Amino acid sequence: MKNGVKMLDIATKLGVSVVTVSNALAGRDGVSEKMRRKICETAEKMGYKPSNTKSEKRRIAIPKIGKNVGILTSERFVGARGTFYWELTASISNQLSQLNICTVYECVTADSEKNAILPNMVTDNKVDGIIVIGQVHRSYIECLSKLTCPLMFVDFYDNRYNIDSVISDSFNGGYMLTDHLVAKGHRKIGFFGTLNATSSINDRYLGYVKCIMENELEFRKEWIIGDRNERGILFDKINFPEEMPTAFVCNCDETAFRVISALKSKGVRVPEDISVVGYDNYTVSSICIPTITTVEVDLSRMAEVSVGIMAKKLADPGYSEGRRIISGKLIEKESVLDINGSYSEERSDAV
């Protein structure tokens, strides 16, 4: 706008939220007549001129300068080489800073998570809202759910609690990976991931199961293999079943990388003997030999949506978005072998 007066300026002057100002100026419900008149009079005195541009619509929800948002991540997701969550955290932090919102980062230790000890940023009243990135234990969610400040989850959710969340489309991603293997001729497909460890693993597993069912393939319990302990720490050693499938769907690229390394140590070639797929399209999928076919998570979009929701919640503490699901896409690399025709050849040889 030419005169530079924004809804944020009006909201700051009157000590109300930008949403309240927007509703008042637009004639929407949710604002008392007395407050509506006060807002309209102030807007006129300040020389505010409404804009219909999309960019202005995006700006009206920006909270007041000086807000702080805490970002929490469990220590099990913080690795020496860096993790998927480091990049996601950095993207969210950068986008928050563009809205003049400062971020305070804190790692939740295993003891704090187990004993439901609130982070220092909360007990010291340093933040106005909290974004939790990566799964935390349900007992810790129970503790966080009692906070009065805006709260949201990124890359996980818990159906027991009505807390806003932004997640990747893990169910369809798991289905997509499994269906890709089926299209390449695989009929014996296993899954790597500890069930109930995270909501993402469960959803990817359920997508895998749906694809197995729809294609009427053999489901074997021994082909469902855990990759981490009850604390979420990845196992050092991977135990394979005596009879192996021709392919494995892994719940993340890190696990796929470890599975491929373990197979190589046993003299099993990937993908010549066994195909392996991962999830995330994170760094390890590209440095692995062979490179790992995976589902790419749109980190930038996840961060953008997460920041947008938190901005709205800071402007209006009563705002609720629900669950937002961000679609991913299949990235074909070198870890899958097309074995179409091999089963018919085996049957011909048998005859």
Rank of each mutant, 00 (worst) to 15 (best):
N229W: 08
M213Y: 10
D179R: 13
V295T: 09
K188H: 15
I189G: 09
R228Y: 02
A303V: 03
N229D: 15
V307Q: 00
I233F: 09
S199H: 08
M244G: 04
L181I: 11
S170T: 04
P271W: 04
Y175P: 00
F171I: 09
L234R: 13
A303W: 00
D203L: 15
D236F: 06
M310H: 00
A262D: 04
I238K: 03
S275F: 04
G173W: 04
V270M: 04
S200F: 06
N229Y: 09
I225E: 05
V297N: 14
R204D: 07
G174P: 05
N202Y: 10
F219P: 00
S170L: 01
R231C: 10
I260V: 09
V182A: 08
E216A: 14
R187P: 01
E272S: 09
T291C: 13
L206P: 00
C250P: 01
D273Y: 06
E254G: 00
M213L: 12
V209S: 07
M244P: 03
V276Y: 02
R220A: 04
F192W: 11
I224E: 08
D169L: 08
I274Y: 01
Y282A: 12
N281F: 00
Y205P: 03
Y279F: 15
V276G: 01
V284H: 00
R269Q: 14
N229P: 07
E243M: 11
K221M: 09
C250W: 02
R220H: 11
E218C: 11
K221C: 03
F171E: 13
F171K: 14
E214G: 06
T283W: 11
S265N: 13
M244I: 07
F235W: 09
V268C: 10
G174H: 04
C252S: 14
V259F: 01
L234Q: 08
A197Y: 09
V307M: 02
E242S: 13
V182R: 09
M176R: 12
E242M: 08
P245R: 07
S275W: 03
N239A: 11
L234V: 11
T294F: 06
H186V: 11
R220T: 01
F219V: 05
F191I: 07
E254C: 05
S275G: 10
Y282S: 15
M213N: 14
H180F: 15
L263I: 03
A256E: 02
L263A: 05
T283Q: 13
T246Y: 07
G226E: 15
V277P: 00
V277C: 13
I233P: 02
S286P: 00
E242N: 11
D236T: 12
F219L: 15
S199I: 07
R228A: 10
M310R: 01
V297F: 04
E304P: 00
I233K: 12
K264V: 04
R269K: 15
F191D: 06
G278Q: 00
F191G: 05
K264N: 11
I292W: 06
I292C: 09
P245K: 05
K210E: 13
E216W: 07
R231T: 08
G232A: 09
V209Q: 12
T294K: 03
S170N: 15
I292D: 03
D280H: 05
R204S: 07
